[in-house]
Simulated assay, not measured.
Amino acid sequence: MSPGTVVAVGGHESDGGRALGGLLDAGVPSVGGGRALLRCVRALRARGERVCVVPMTLGRDPDLAADAARTLRALAPDERAGTVLAAPFGTADHLVGWLRGAACRAPGDAALLVTAPSGGPYADADLFRIARLVRQYGRHRTVEVALTGGEPDPAEGVRRCLALGERRVVLLPAAWAAPDSPDPAHCRRGGPLLSPAAVAGVLDARVREAWERYERSGDDGLSRALSAAHSHSHSHSHSHTHEHAHDHGDAHAHAHRRADTAAPPRTAAPPALTSHRSPR
């Protein structure tokens, strides 16, 4: 049976899907959520195409899959019958692994500035935790964070690195959208995070898993995404003990071991809002 058409839905990590264009195959449309997703899927189903929607989060937009599920529930029954929602493209654990791989390609004597669009207080705080793990298991002395549309922004992030005595800064994107260099004299872009070939490999795995579940048990992925979002929301409505955060992360890690990059070792380190810098 034909795998049908893949639709990539993006959120704040990809500027509503616009930053995905150069990384996806020509036959994979990229759209934002809501009405844009609904129109795209309806048009494809009207042509008789089966559709697999993939939430293109790298791990910092946990609501993207649930938002897509709510949108797809508005489809008519005959449209729903040939539509599935895949698991998210990546998790925060995958993002740590991908960033560590990108860090290995950066000069060892440069500071790393992990950059991403601001995604709200929880997503932004988690980016500091992710950066801390990148420094912990890497060879770079200084790893800072910068948030496009947030604080500190990329220009401030570069200034912090220079103030710490670094001479060169590499912008390491933790999102599909990468910022321009705010100080070309001292920094350069280190992206993209994943090559088109790597993106295609992970995307293919997510699509294959989604159709296998659907054909095996009729699971279209919508209830699964909504349940995951409920669990995530529930965790944020209570006190954030380190033990709970560790269990929550492990659950995600075990659910996605089949991704092309293995999840890194986990630590009990809480989110840190200070510089991630080790002694020379």
Rank of each mutant, 00 (worst) to 15 (best):
A102M: 06
G190Q: 00
H94R: 08
H140A: 09
H242Y: 06
R258N: 12
A253G: 04
G165N: 09
A174H: 03
C104H: 12
A123Y: 03
P184S: 06
Y122H: 14
R277Q: 15
H12M: 06
T274N: 09
R100F: 01
D180K: 13
G201A: 14
G32H: 04
P184H: 07
P279F: 04
L127F: 06
D67K: 07
A74F: 00
A155G: 11
G149H: 02
A43Q: 08
T71W: 03
V41W: 02
V53L: 08
V169R: 00
H248I: 04
G10I: 00
V158H: 05
W211Y: 12
R160M: 14
S231H: 13
A125D: 14
A262W: 06
S233D: 15
P192E: 14
A65W: 02
L37V: 05
V134G: 03
A268I: 10
W98A: 15
Y214W: 15
D260T: 11
W98H: 02
P264C: 01
G59E: 02
F89R: 00
A155S: 13
V31D: 02
Y214M: 13
L23G: 02
V28P: 01
D93K: 03
G22M: 11
A68F: 07
E243S: 13
A111W: 06
W211R: 15
G32Q: 01
V169Y: 00
S217A: 14
A229P: 11
Y122C: 08
A81T: 10
S14E: 02
P182C: 11
G201Y: 00
R141E: 15
D183W: 06
A178H: 03
G149R: 05
P77W: 12
A110P: 00
T83Y: 12
G22H: 15
A43L: 04
L64V: 03
V7S: 06
L24W: 04
V51T: 11
A155K: 02
A268M: 12
A198E: 15
A110G: 02
V6D: 09
T142C: 13
L171G: 02
H276D: 13
L58P: 00
A269K: 10
H186L: 10
R213P: 07
V202M: 09
S2E: 15
A175F: 05
S275D: 15
D153L: 03
G17I: 03
R73M: 08
V41T: 06
H246Q: 11
H140C: 08
A205N: 08
D25Q: 14
P154C: 12
D109I: 05
G150P: 04
E156W: 09
L72C: 10
A26D: 14
R60S: 12
L193F: 05
S227K: 13
G27K: 07
G157S: 13
T91R: 09
R216Q: 14
